[in-house]
């Protein structure tokens, strides 16, 4: 048998460009913000647009986080995810309308309690719905992408029609609770209060999600499962149980995103979730399927890009996100922070 070569391997220090390449996804958000500043010129408009871009990004992130984990864990493409957004919005808004007395007075406590209850109701309903959706619609088509697409789109249509049955065919207009109306002015820039709240909720959720994924055993199992599910099973964990948990949590988060998006737009329709899915898929893809961090960065990029471009060149707003996706995929075909190996 040949002897081992007589040298010790050494680690070469990474060059600047290699280190930059590694850090690039994280640096893209501040980079885009700076570019936006240079292109827009007026600090007050830039600040308003940045806050609204971040708010939009956070809401998309909340909707996309579940989708990306569900794909990563079980290789399931769920086009029905948008259904949870719509149902969440309708349930949440119904609660807010029922609590009209609480939302109509200018009391922060009552307003926030109403929003809190609306969110809890929406997340409970969409969480339970997610459990049923997984059992009835997704479970029979594990491992078959084409069937998954057909059957989950079917599920989405059924749910949308059920919304029409329960809430009627019309869109519902909703005004935000009193204390969340209006804007605060800071250094000459007007920033809507609600958008600031959305940014705060998104940040808290992202940090909490990261903590769960990094610091808890169940988070370890989820991350390991995204990377190599069969090995997680071979170590003795029931991956399907973990997957159901993630599916339910992701559905509930989509419901939360639906309530937040409804309050942001101040109007809800049965098709709103389906419309959001385009952005949600763009975010999940450019972030790298299976990566919560990637989805977070991707969502902020999409939100900022949309707002900056809509201000600078309204006609380009529609293509801006597709252009962003194209550019990122040309740079990194697996997305910015890929965790799922090509199957």
């Amino acid at each position: 048998m040949a002897a081992a070569p007589d040298h010790k391997p050494t680690f070469a220090a990474l060059s600047l460009s290699e280190r930059l390449d590694k850090a690039m996804p994280v640096l893209l958000v501040p980079l885009l913000v700076v570019l936006g500043f240079l292109a827009i010129g007026t600090p007050s408009s830039w600040m308003t647009l940045t806050v609204s871009g971040l708010a939009m990004g956070m809401m998309i992130f909340i909707m996309a986080s579940g989708l990306t984990l569900v794909f990563g864990l079980m290789d399931v493409i769920n086009f029905g995810h948008g259904a949870f957004v719509s149902v969440g919005a309708f349930v949440g808004v119904s609660v807010l309308i029922a609590l009209g007395d609480w939302t109509g007075t200018a009391s922060l406590l009552l307003n926030m309690s109403a929003v809190f209850l609306a969110v809890v109701a929406a997340m409970m309903v969409t969480g339970i719905m997610g459990w049923g959706f997984e059992r009835i619609i997704v479970k029979p088509v594990y491992g078959a992408h084409l069937k998954q697409i057909l059957v989950t789109v079917g599920g989405l249509i059924v749910v949308e029609q059920l919304i029409h049955v329960v809430w009627g065919p019309d869109e519902i207009f909703i005004t935000r609770p009193e204390t969340l109306k209006g804007a605060i002015t800071f250094a000459g820039a007007a920033m809507e209060k609600y958008r600031l709240l959305a940014v705060a909720i998104g940040l808290v959720l992202f940090i909490a999600m990261r903590m769960v994924l990094r610091r808890t055993k169940i988070g370890l199992i989820v991350r390991a499962g995204v990377e190599n599910g069969p090995m997680v099973e071979a170590l003795g964990y029931r991956l399907r149980m973990v997957f159901i948990g993630v599916f339910v949590a992701g559905s509930a988060l989509a419901g939360l995103g639906g309530v937040m998006w409804g309050l942001y737009q101040e109007v809800i329709t049965a098709g709103m979730g389906e419309k959001m899915m385009v952005l949600v898929f763009i975010v999940a893809i450019i972030g790298g399927l299976g990566s919560v961090e990637g989805a977070f960065i991707g969502a902020l990029l999409v939100g900022l890009m949309q707002n900056y471009v809509a201000f600078l060149e309204p006609k380009l707003a529609l293509v801006s996100n597709i252009a962003l996706m194209t550019a990122i995929l040309m740079w990194r075909p697996q997305g910015m922070l890929p965790v799922v190996k090509a199957k």
């Binding site: 055993k217 370890l220 390991a224 990377e227 965790v339």
Partner: peptide
């Protein structure tokens, strides 16, 4: 599990 640390791999064991 490549994205996990050695410690995390051991914890999962």
């Amino acid at each position: 599990f490549r994205d996990l640390t050695v410690e995390e791999n051991m914890i999962l064991g």
